[in-house]
Write a protein that binds this DNA or RNA. Structure first.
Lengths: 151, 151
DNA sequence: TTCTTTGCAAAATGTTTGCAGATAC
DNA sequence: GTATCTGCAAACATTTTGCAAAGAA
């Protein structure tokens, strides 16, 4: 369901491109899918399936999940496990890795290019090509580090 | 519930040490807690709450969860979110960070000291002191990278 | 005796699935 | 016409919670 940065699938360049990919795989273009794809091409933030569902009240949540997983198989979108709680979704192939503060929840989108040296170093030391998108880094931001309160 | 590597609580050195910490916090020593603490001082692998519960059939799962969270507040244990699925638990203050292959599930325990330069680099770039224990790195190991099959 | 802990059952959360009818092509 | 898709309801997995009885100090 996810692939290391080094071999992510090509991002879909446009709504039509995504719909084309969907059609080519044997999928049908329904109004739900159309709406969801449009959503991903205009969304500013990464949202959970439930949040996306709330924006599309005429579409059942099970349909939301089924569409999302279909889109994901086609590389149109990808999901990110941010800390505890539900996964969030965004367009596939986005060249940034989220880094989150577990205390305040603030998320930095860090260019993957910036993190590649770290990824290489980890790979050399452990043999594992880490995927910083699917399971992103998290910790405490400067602001929250001075806070004493527990997480 | 978790703290960056730079300020993790002192690990408990022995079963008695852990029980002492428990008592000092106002907790009572019950047979369930005794058994669980003993478990953590002899366990070789990190297990989920459910797996730990299966090893203690006389203890209800809700009690398992309550004990685990009490132990965690005292720094006796810590939990790790390994990929999808349930969290796994281990003794607190362990000086290694797990790195997991999402394909085969194999986990390397990497010395935190080895990862500190990376943590520093990320902190310099993002201002976030990443916690590689609570939300560990994951990716694909060499063996699985040659595999074509999807995750 | 007092406060903590336990078991049980139920709820909460996030996600998946079976099925019968609706829809795209 | 046929395969895909949908809504609904129900299951599922993990974790949390309310409550009354049991146990530790």
């Amino acid at each position: 369901m996810t692939t290391p940065a080094s071999e992510r699938s090509e991002p879909t360049a446009s709504i039509d491109d995504a719909l084309r990919r969907l059609r080519q795989s044997g999928g049908r273009i329904t109004s739900a899918k159309q709406a969801l794809i449009e959503f991903f091409f205009t969304a500013e933030a990464m949202l959970t399936a439930e949040q996306i569902g709330a924006l599309h009240p005429d579409v059942d949540n099970s349909t939301i999940y089924r569409c999302l997983s279909q889109f994901e198989e086609l590389g149109i979108i990808e999901h990110v496990h941010m800390g505890h709680g539900a996964a969030v979704y965004r367009r596939g192939g986005t060249p940034t890795a989220p880094i989150t503060c577990v205390v305040c929840g603030r998320t930095e989108q860090t260019p993957i290019s910036l993190l590649l040296p770290l990824v290489s170093a980890i790979e050399e030391e452990t043999g594992i090509d880490v995927d910083l998108v699917h399971f992103p880094l998290s910790g405490r931001c400067i602001r929250c580090r001075s806070d004493v309160r527990a997480i």
